[in-house]
Simulated scan of single mutants.
Amino acid sequence: MEPNFDIIKTSGEKVKFSLRNLRSSLAKSGADDQTIQEIITKVKYELYDGISTKELYNRAFALLKKKGSHLASKYKLKKAIYELGPTGYPFERFVAAILKYSGYDTHVSQIFKGHCVRHEIDVVAIKNDTTTFIECKFHSEEGRNCNVKVPLYIASRYHDLKTHWSATPQNSTLDIGWVVTNTRFTEDALQYGKCIGLYLLSWDYPNNDGLKDRIDRLGLYPITVSTQLTNREKQFLLSRDLVLYRDLLDDVFFLDHLGISEVRKTKINKEIKLLCKL
């Protein structure tokens, strides 16, 4: 029987608790049916009216971690991307890494001339003699979505860049502009982006090809998903521009620099291999 409880989202909105949603989120971690049912059974008896989604997540995460650290790592993906902050720079490098593994030649924080002014572009991706300008909108707080002001602003910058690009000799063609966010776009933002010709990429948009889908498909998880590293260690690695967890596999320099024991190194490597399927 479905428990009749309200849960409180990060935004403060009240919604009905859904076993189906909980089951779906656990399944996406890679947990088998037996593990999912065991967790659901335990969580159901700990529910109360007005429980926060954060508390619900923390409980499910703790139970998953007991079953396998790589399951817990994958389950915390969305939260892990928020932890790339507080600045947007690690997220930009993360987006560049995803595109690099998709066959693009990528660069971050590049300056280009526009018709009116110069612009710093978060990520430049080049593939098949086509250049793509990508702007990243990172939020470190849950519950904040990108409204229509974001694509409006990016569209104006892209128009200035495209005007100059079209008027001067170039070695490649300029693709449509991209806007990438770790949260979601409002309906107005999606509508405007589609109308003006911007490609919008968010946590779950486009359908089946959103940020989370690309991460899972490529096995490119951020360093912040790790259940084996401390927050201090993660921040140190991010400050050294190491954003992909898989890049830490069999690492010698950084792990030794952090003073990580051989036992922990073994656990880290095991988690990376299971999570990223290496």
Rank of each mutant, 00 (worst) to 15 (best):
A60F: 05
F61W: 12
F61G: 06
F61M: 13
A62N: 14
A62E: 15
L63M: 14
L64P: 13
K65M: 06
K66W: 01
K66Q: 14
K66H: 03
K66N: 11
K67R: 15
G68R: 03
G68K: 04
G68C: 05
S69M: 02
S69A: 11
H70W: 12
H70M: 00
H70V: 04
H70D: 07
A72E: 00
A72I: 04
S73M: 04
S73W: 10
Y75F: 15
Y75M: 07
K76Y: 01
K76V: 04
K76T: 04
K76D: 05
L77K: 03
L77D: 03
L77E: 05
K78I: 07
K78N: 13
K79A: 09
A80S: 15
A80V: 06
A80L: 07
I81M: 01
I81Q: 00
Y82K: 14
E83V: 02
L84Q: 05
G85E: 01
G85D: 01
G85P: 15
P86D: 08
T87V: 07
T87E: 14
T87D: 12
G88N: 14
Y89H: 14
P90S: 02
E92I: 11
E92S: 05
E92Q: 15
R93A: 06
R93G: 13
A96P: 06
A96Y: 12
A96L: 13
A97T: 06
A97S: 15
A97V: 02
